[in-house]
Amino acid sequence: MSDTPVRDTATGGLEAVSVGTDALVGMATLGKTAAALALVLVIIFAASALLKRLQLHRQPAGGRLRVISAAAVGPRERVVIVQVEERWLVLGVGGGQVNKLHELEAPPQEAAASSGAGFEAGDSFATRFAKALRHNAGLKERGKS
């Protein structure tokens, strides 16, 4: 009679170990799946950040239309100055409409580039920031007299 309870105990122990092993395998699979999902999300965010950075440095198609300035005059209304070739158009935008308010000759590029702290059209933010700091500190630009 002593042999029967030992077998039941041994069988019960093996079942407990196999159930625990199944739970560990399930947790390991869940962990691997979560890690793979996290990796895919990191790749998506990195790719979108890279694309945004590359979009900033690209010129618009054709390069003939450029927004010079915009100002809000109401919750959904704006006045926008747009350069089309050598003309500036002052446009009123709002309520699903665009109205031409005025038309001006575009100022020469040299005058616009030489005003302020000496910003140029192709300058990056870091370059403009450094020029503004030097301008505000009263220092001259390096390499220029």
Results as ranks from 00 to 15, higher is better:
L56G: 04
L56I: 10
L56E: 14
H57Y: 05
Q59D: 12
P60A: 11
A61K: 14
G62R: 07
G62M: 10
G63K: 09
G63D: 13
G63I: 04
G63C: 06
G63M: 05
R64V: 11
R64G: 03
R64N: 13
R66C: 03
V67C: 10
V67T: 12
V67R: 07
I68Y: 04
I68W: 03
I68R: 07
S69V: 02
S69H: 12
A70E: 13
A70R: 10
A70G: 06
A70C: 09
A71W: 01
V73A: 08
V73T: 15
V73C: 10
G74N: 13
G74Y: 07
P75M: 08
R76W: 13
E77F: 12
E77D: 15
E77C: 08
E77L: 11
E77T: 13
E77I: 07
R78I: 04
V79S: 01
V80C: 01
V80R: 02
V80P: 01
I81Q: 00
I81V: 05
V82M: 04
Q83Y: 00
V84S: 00
V84H: 02
E85P: 00
E85M: 00
W88T: 00
L89C: 02
L89G: 01
L89H: 06
L89Y: 09
V90Y: 00
V90G: 02
V90K: 06
V90Q: 09
L91Q: 04
L91F: 05
G92L: 12
G92E: 06
G92V: 01
V93I: 12
V93D: 01
G94H: 05
G94Y: 08
G94E: 07
G96S: 09
G96I: 10
G96K: 10
G96Y: 10
G96R: 10
Q97Y: 12
Q97F: 13
V98E: 10
V98H: 05
N99E: 11
N99C: 06
N99G: 02
K100T: 14
K100S: 06
H102S: 11
H102W: 07
H102E: 12
H102D: 14
E103G: 07
E103T: 15
L104R: 13
E105K: 15
E105M: 11
A106Q: 05
P107R: 07
P107V: 05
P108E: 08
P108R: 12
Q109K: 11
E110P: 03
E110S: 15
E110N: 07
A112D: 12
A112S: 14
A112L: 15
A113H: 10
A113V: 08
S114C: 08
S114L: 14
S115C: 10
S115G: 09
S115E: 13
G116I: 08
A117Q: 02
A117N: 03
A117C: 08
F119V: 02
E120Q: 12
E120P: 01
A121Q: 11
G122D: 10
G122R: 07
D123Y: 05
D123P: 03
D123L: 04
F125H: 04
F125W: 08
A126L: 11
A126C: 03
T127R: 06
R128K: 14
R128S: 08
R128C: 14
R128M: 15
A130R: 14
A132D: 10
A132W: 08
A132P: 03
L133C: 15
L133I: 14
